[in-house]
């Protein structure tokens, strides 16, 4: 059984069947891509996994436990972190503070009235945040406002914030959307490095085939809210149904 098990998930928005009987199994420490044309239900599925949406029917199990009906912060505390399409960071805070916050969240839980000690006195948290920032090559920007970073650096910062929590499952929502080719390649290298150096499971929603085929070990193709096929990249490439539903369209 996979670390993430999605069983028979349905979600309707009015007359639109956004997800129709979706089944998905993500194996531990694998990189699993979910692809599909626009409106295939990729983002809806992701939102069902993180607690932003609640499926109408079906189950979502993470590490053997149901996450359905839990709030986003509770789901995060079980070990699921999420990277957004446009980086979601704390723009008014410094780069270092941005990463210290997830460190606090991991150590102290969803809430702690932590007003006695100063931030400065939290040496271990600060060191941990700095280590992650060094991994993401942001060590020269520690004291800068996060809002002043370039888009690529914001992406690295968001990644650092997620990794600081040492999540078991990292969800990435189109991490290269709107990026130039050079930046896309940098992001691919970054993700490869994360995949190879950390024990982490990644589920990537992606539009860009180049990204998917460079990273993924398994690929699920969604079309019109239902999984079309799930296989290895090699087999997906040559699959006639996929060509028809997705690749043909994209390249044609």
């Amino acid at each position: 059984m996979g670390i993430l098990e999605v069983r028979n998930v349905n979600k309707r928005f009015g007359g639109l069947q956004a997800l129709a009987d979706v089944n998905l199994s993500v194996q531990e420490n694998a990189v699993h891509a979910i692809i599909g044309p626009n409106g295939a239900g990729k983002s809806t599925l992701l939102n069902c996994l993180v607690g932003k949406l609640i499926p109408d029917t079906g189950t979502v199990m993470f590490d053997g436990q149901s996450v359905l009906g839990r709030k986003p912060h509770e789901i995060n505390q079980t070990g699921i972190s999420r990277v957004f399409q446009t980086p979601e960071i704390f723009g008014d805070l410094t780069v270092l503070e941005n990463v210290m916050i997830p460190c606090f969240a991991t150590r102290d839980g969803a809430f702690r009235l932590h007003a006695i000690r100063t931030v400065r006195a939290e040496q271990d948290i600060m060191e941990r945040a700095e280590r992650v920032l060094i991994d993401m090559s942001l060590q020269d920007r520690l004291r800068d406002h996060a809002a002043s970073l370039s888009r690529g650096d914001k992406r690295r910062l968001e990644m650092a914030m997620c990794l600081a929590q040492e999540p078991r499952l990292l969800l990435l929502d189109e991490p290269t959307a709107g990026m130039a080719r050079a930046d896309t390649n940098k992001t691919i290298d970054l993700l490869k490095e994360i995949r190879d150096t950390r024990n982490i499971t990644m589920a990537i929603i992606e539009h860009d085939m180049h990204v998917v085929f460079s990273l993924a070990e398994r690929i699920t193709v969604l079309a019109q809210g239902a999984p079309l096929v799930e296989d290895t990249p090699e087999n997906i490439k040559g699959h006639p149904k996929v060509q028809e539903a997705y690749l043909g369209q994209a390249h044609g």
Binding site: H73, L93, A105, T118, M161
Partner: peptide, 24 residues
Amino acid sequence: RSPFGMMLRAVKSNQQRMSYTGLN
């Protein structure tokens, strides 16, 4: 100057990121 104060500034900055970072 406390971590609590930092969390409050984080609330002002980005509530969405707060909840997806496991904070209520």
